[in-house]
């Protein structure tokens, strides 16, 4: 392995660490706006990884995939979500069910779990980075945790997006083997979900004057 490849590998590792840090920030962020930006940033970071990890020989497929996912996750989704927040006129602070510091500590535990699990999964060896699979698992877990531990409907959309980021990262680990169509399909699903949820959040808010999801469970028909 020559110096250039070592440097690229270091850069990929650094990007992956930033993805982990974005997860931590997501767990500790107290405002909707910063949550949306963090998830968008995470999407952009993940979009950059295939470009860097392929080194000199970039295929059209890789570039296209990175471009589509970066534009969708970095620009379209946050714009949709910020619009939904503005239109629903909800308060910008999150109302966490689990507090921020316990959330961060949970994040530490989840990270350890993901690293342990990632080391034990019987997967084919990846060319990109040995960290990618554990970090993908971690991102998925953080997404699930965000859905469970935050009250607002918007944060559930964000948790869903973080999960999609995790699935994308999982796909990156096996970039050569995964069909292009599957990746695009997932992105399209995520796009539709965010689109529909954005409208739904607005509708929920108009109907009930708030978007607290835990109070929906007390509804009677």
């Amino acid at each position: 392995m020559n110096g250039w490849e070592t440097a690229l590998k270091g850069l990929v590792d650094t990007l992956i660490v930033f993805v982990v840090l974005a997860n931590m920030r997501l767990l500790g962020a107290s405002r909707l706006g910063s949550c949306i930006r963090v998830v968008a940033l995470q999407g952009i970071l993940l979009g950059l990884i295939p470009l860097v990890s392929q080194g000199g020989h970039l295929g059209l497929r890789v570039v296209l995939q990175a471009a589509v996912s970066t534009v969708l996750k970095g620009i379209v989704f946050p714009a949709l979500l910020i619009r939904a927040v503005r239109e629903s006129g909800s308060r910008r602070e999150l109302a966490p069910i689990v507090g921020y510091t316990p959330s961060l500590l949970t994040g530490g535990g989840l990270l350890a779990l993901a690293l342990w699990l990632g080391g034990r999964l019987p997967l084919p060896p990846t060319a990109t980075s040995s960290l990618l699979v554990p970090v993908a698992l971690f991102t998925i877990m953080v997404g699930l945790f965000m859905i469970v531990a935050r009250r607002k409907a918007i944060t559930q959309v964000l948790g869903y997006l973080a999960m999609e980021n995790g699935i994308f990262a999982f796909g990156l680990a096996f970039a050569e083997k995964e069909p292009f169509l599957v990746e695009m399909g997932i992105l399209l699903d995520a796009f539709m979900a965010v689109f529909v949820m954005g409208i739904m959040v607005y509708q929920i808010n108009r109907e009930f004057d708030h978007i607290d999801a835990d109070r929906l469970s007390a509804l009677k028909d």
């Binding site: 840090l21 931590m24 530490g108 990270l111 690293l115």
Partner: peptide
């Protein structure tokens, strides 16, 4: 401060992994 601890923890986990 818990955030800083997590940074260190992450570094440690990366070294161990």
């Amino acid at each position: 401060l818990v955030g800083a601890t997590l940074l260190s923890l992450l570094a440690l986990l990366m070294v161990l992994a």
